[in-house]
Design a protein around this nucleic acid. Sequence first.
DNA 1: CAAAATATACAACGCTCGTTGTAATTTGGC
DNA 2: GCCAAATTACAACGAGCGTTGTATATTTTG
Lengths: 228, 228
Amino acid sequence: MTGTGSEGKTRTAPPRRGRVDKATAIVQAACEVFGRDGYSRASIDTIAAEAGASTRTIYNHFPGGKEELFRSIMQWSSERVRDEQLAQLRRYLDPERPPHPDDLERDLLALARAWVGLMTDFRNHFSLVRHIYAEAGHIPAEVLDAWQEAGPRVVGREVASAMAALGDRGLIDVHDSPAQAAVHFMALICTEITQRSYWGVSPLPPEEADRLTSAGVRAFLRAYGSSG
Amino acid sequence: MTGTGSEGKTRTAPPRRGRVDKATAIVQAACEVFGRDGYSRASIDTIAAEAGASTRTIYNHFPGGKEELFRSIMQWSSERVRDEQLAQLRRYLDPERPPHPDDLERDLLALARAWVGLMTDFRNHFSLVRHIYAEAGHIPAEVLDAWQEAGPRVVGREVASAMAALGDRGLIDVHDSPAQAAVHFMALICTEITQRSYWGVSPLPPEEADRLTSAGVRAFLRAYGSSG
DNA sequence: CAAAATATACAACGCTCGTTGTAATTTGGC
DNA sequence: GCCAAATTACAACGAGCGTTGTATATTTTG
């Protein structure tokens, strides 16, 4: 779909033609517009203008039209952010290198801060996610499921196994459910910020966001810390 | 706006003409359709059909057209659910009648269950809320603010003062911020259920929902309990 | 440069939708 | 049953949008 990778360059032309591949320009513009306006409000003309392409080119690349384009960027955007989230997770909470007990709070806080940072770095993506939430009843179940499996569910599983690793080493007490601990961690970190920032429409000042993040981490450690 | 209350019945005709007041039928239908389809996808014709009214009648009652209708039901639906949430809050966590320490978990769990029940009883409302989240960038700031003040913010403040009352009586430790404790309580209760139920599209079996709810309450008490 | 693949401009079709005007019809109060 | 208010049916306008076909232009490849 987004395969800018290693197709045969022996016979067929490589997909890079113009200054930047038109296909990726279209995908990026579609992410922007769909994220800002949602599926119904977004128009092909707007996406074409934002991409610096003509509407006809969009239909050449996505014969399925608006629906196929939306499905494609659901996957694309989700995978991109998932990779970024997993990278931060491994950076600050690598199961191979468990932290010192004294450094646990520091590492969890660093992870939380990094994730909150992603929410502003990829504002379009999370705006798109909100639209997916809202329009879930109008998206085919298979597409919704593929999207979850391409992003959120994977991240949830990885966080859960990181929690399990911390539990195995006695750094936290997962209370019989690493998956639940993972959900509670993410909920305590993100809920208040998304709420107070009007879901990204009017971002919080960084120090305020930091305060809320660290409060969430401390609450999590009170609920799931092994010693205190 | 929805004033079915006490207007003068001395001169002007009371607004109830047909079997049910057409205005309220329109408002209810609009809640249903806007909640299901969102602002852009919803059409006046659909709302009229659902209300058993003609489109012209809608424009007679709401001269501002689609936008005014949407603004009206934002307020109406929010106030309705807010009242219900506050009623449950006062029922299970009345600041005047603080619970016995032994009954705190029982009462918090009862409150949490009641709130989760509201999420299914008023599915349309919460679906509408998700659409508001997603379309926040296309809703005037004043309207968004009035909506928050008519519902979510009030509930948040009431929960916060309930938490403060519990803290004053030594039943919990609010850790310097009753408001934050309130947000964390609601986050721990609702996040996993909304997530796992595909945001209400495919509801969880009741016993599973109950399990997640009580796990959230226990986590909250570990984080904010005064003794343990 | 020539050929082939790709992108564009342009027009057009069909459909949906928000909105309004008007005349006819129904409804409820007296 | 009469009157006034409310509701309806109906037609129509205008705009926006998804989509397609076609002919032309542009870029890449050989």
